[in-house]
């Protein structure tokens, strides 16, 4: 039946892959920064995404109940971001900081434990059931469809995907400005490149650590909210399910390379969606049952062939 559309590859494989890639990319930024600056793989990162989305849901629900406002999720996400960053700071202070000078395994285990603590707390408070984030079906944007149909390139994109892609681009622009132009951004890059050198040149490493949590937390909540906007509901395992593909994205792009992580996220998102495209014949190229394996395979091949990633990140 797709013959009538003619443009199915872009509409049903490429754009969804790009949307998924945007979400992976935002999540991978936090992972790659923590990995580069604090030098550990933060397993609790997915839970920050999830918690941020739950905060956003709670804020918009309460605003609806008490004030009668219907907030757009992106508006409700702003206070949620502050709450999530606050929690990240507290976790860092009490659970990660004691291990700053200990072997990496300790803080990785601590982050694994935090993953459980945060998730089970959310499950206990909000319950394990799915929560409706946005009700209904978001049909493709009619204006775009009409316009592109006249050009014989019918593009079908729902509004939520425009929001997600535009949001990612805006966050990326702000982020570029932060890293390239501001003092703290430069300090972050310096610590990521060489922490010892940064320390002797008088950079306040703890301030850089705080900035890392702020930026990582911001991007993680944005990723969580975008994910919730796309799937339109919340569940407590939504963050954890994204974690390994986000690790894959961070490694693909090179550890400590935020732009690499964005690029890696887009590649992983596209690879997952395109793996099911019937490249040869009519059947999916790879059975969709193996879809999650695509990201891991890319990640492992990358680790073996070029552990520094596409953008020459750090290797330890």
């Amino acid at each position: 039946m797709w013959a009538s559309f003619g443009f199915e590859f872009v509409n049903f494989y490429f754009i969804p892959g790009l949307v998924l890639g945007c979400i992976y990319a935002l999540g991978a930024i936090g992972i790659t920064l923590t990995f580069g600056i604090l030098r550990f793989a933060n397993f609790a990162h997915g839970e920050v995404m999830m918690t941020g989305a739950y905060f956003t849901w709670t804020i918009s629900t309460l605003a609806g109940l008490w004030l009668g406002w219907s907030l757009h999720p992106l508006v409700a996400a702003i206070p949620a971001i502050f709450a999530a960053i606050g929690i990240l700071m507290l976790i860092d202070r009490y659970f990660y900081k004691p291990f700053r000078n200990a072997p990496t395994i300790m803080v990785v285990m601590a982050s694994f434990g935090m993953m459980l603590v945060v998730r089970s707390t959310v499950q206990f408070i909000w319950g394990p059931n799915q929560l409706t984030f946005v009700k209904g079906i978001d049909k493709p944007n009619e204006a775009v469809r009409q316009f592109t149909a006249d050009l014989d390139l019918m593009i079908l994109v729902p509004n939520k995907h425009f929001w997600i892609m535009a949001g990612t681009v805006i966050i990326m622009l702000c982020f570029t400005y932060l890293l390239e132009r501001t003092r703290i951004g430069k300090a972050m890059r310096a610590v990521s490149d060489s922490p010892d050198l940064a320390r002797v040149t008088g950079i306040d490493v703890e301030a850089v650590v705080r900035a890392t949590w702020v930026v990582g937390g911001f991007c993680a909540v944005a990723a969580g909210v975008f994910l919730a906007m796309d799937i339109q509901f919340l569940e407590t395992t939504m963050g954890f399910r994204m974690l390994l593909p986000m690790f894959a994205a961070a490694i693909l792009g090179g550890i400590g390379r935020p732009f690499g992580a964005v690029f890696g996220g887009l590649i992983i998102g596209l690879a997952e969606e395109l793996s099911a495209y019937p490249w040869i014949g009519d059947a999916p190229f790879i059975s969709p049952g193996y879809k999650t394996g695509v990201a891991f395979t890319i990640m492992i091949i990358m680790l073996i062939v070029r552990p520094s990633g596409l953008f020459k990140g750090r290797t330890f």
Partner: peptide, 25 residues
């Protein structure tokens, strides 16, 4: 016309849907 497994709890099933949708209504 097609009989495909999908992994539970993924964020997006658009590619699966597109592949299946090409075969039947």
């Amino acid at each position: 016309t097609a009989n495909e497994a999908h992994e539970p709890s993924k964020a997006s099933y658009r590619s699966e849907i597109a592949t299946l949708g090409a075969t039947s209504d």
